[in-house]
Design a protein around this nucleic acid. Structure first.
Lengths: 176, 176
DNA sequence: CCCAAACATGTCAATAGATACATGTTTGGG
DNA sequence: CCCAAACATGTATCTATTGACATGTTTGGG
């Protein structure tokens, strides 16, 4: 479905940036709903350029370091908006290795099960704290139709997901 | 990480079954935490057989229809249990195309945004109802260390996830 | 008895994704 | 001034996943 294509187009539709900048977005905001590393991003940018959906101009940083700053083309913008408008069927449940382990956890000793659950709980608590810290940067919800509203809603969703996950993990502990 | 390998080993560790039966598990219980179709399952069973982790015997249904009933070997069971015991680091946030669309939803008209959100809400409500129907099949929580407890906990987790998703979608609607 | 749905097993090609390999520049703090 | 961290861009290989292609049998209801 070329999801990566549309994430990149969406980011470039917000503002022009380099592959490196895009990679950074994947390390921060985008990480709440998609993952990709630079080894996927650079070839995809090349492909999008060939397809005429993005263009780039080279900027020199310092003496010689070349930076390709990509921009979306009208054709790219059109494809992005069309894709965004499509009503997609509900996605299949996300994959989860930990839920798989719980599914088969009768094969573990109660001690081991407790240990694994506590390990997850600690990590998810940290993630939740980190998300809540980001959330405080927004003093009040961004106004309608601003790009920040998307960031905000996704962040709220991430917080809700982590809170739910922690509740579930603790419930699993109760049964152990 | 060979997740599919371990799902199959886990299922065969519960009871012997055919590739078709395994595929059915992926359509029901397993679908709450992993997905795979028969085009992945049959080659994987072949590979596991070559690795000596499973064996099969052929059963005839009716006159000529051959069915391969797979069983886990001691070596397979050992590998499965070892894998199950490992403490895995928290997984990256699951990918979600719909959250991606919300992230960029300032590019949509409020009407379109509402439409997409309502479409998701309807579908998730149906999934939730379906999960709750399954939940009622358990009169009370299965006892500790039974395989049913794994099914039960995963089901509860799925219900919590759907309830959270619905709350989030409704919150998104409020901002639209 | 017919026919559709369920049973049953596979392959192939294309895309997507993860991890490692590969190389170099610039900036800012100690 | 040195050095580490950040900036910057790519390729190669392997594995995982999806969707289509391919084929045939059995069962149960109308």
């Amino acid at each position: 479905m070329r999801i990566l294509k549309h994430v990149i187009l969406g980011l470039l539709n917000r503002s022009s940036m380099s592959g490196y900048d895009i990679t950074n977005e994947f390390h921060t905001t985008v990480s709440e709903f998609w993952t990709a590393s630079h080894s996927q991003i650079y070839p995809e940018l090349k492909k999008l350029t060939e397809e005429g959906l993005v263009t780039y101009e080279i900027q020199i940083t310092g003496e010689v370091l070349e930076k390709k700053v990509y921009s979306i083309t009208p054709k790219g913008k059109q494809q992005f908006i069309n894709w965004l408008k499509i009503d997609v069927p509900m996605e299949p449940t996300p994959k989860s290795v930990f839920r798989l382990k719980i599914f088969f956890s009768d094969q573990l000793s109660p001690e081991r099960r407790k240990y694994l659950l506590n390990s997850q709980i600690l990590q998810h608590r940290q993630r939740l704290e980190h998300l809540k810290a980001n959330h405080q940067k927004f003093k009040n919800p961004p106004k309608m139709n601003s790009p920040e509203l998307g960031d905000y809603l996704v962040l709220e969703g991430a917080i809700m997901r982590e809170e739910m996950t922690l509740k579930w993990l603790e419930k699993c502990l109760d049964y152990t």
